[in-house]
Amino acid sequence: MAKVKGDIVVDTEKCKGCEVCIDACPTHTIAMSEDVNGKGYHYMQNIYDACTGCTNCAIVCPDGVITVYRIKV
């Protein structure tokens, strides 16, 4: 079975830290940063490197801050 690997790029300055994406992530790879952005929000990050590029986080993100990449490995 072909495996896939994904990753995300987050527009951290536009992330409002709502955590809706964390609730939607099937591999629990994302978590909030300890740092805050210019507006004082913690922002989401791909912390645990288990991303499959499923896009769930991006499509539920109300602020559209996530770009998702995926390759077959």
Binding site: K5, T55, I66, T67, V68, Y69, R70, I71, V73
Partner: peptide, 20 residues
């Protein structure tokens, strides 16, 4: 095997599966 994939290899325009 995963360890051999660099961020540079993934973050290419052709690998984008979702973008605003």
């Amino acid at each position: 095997m995963d360890g051999t994939i660099t961020k540079e290899a993934i973050f290419k325009p052709e690998n984008i599966v979702y973008k605003k």
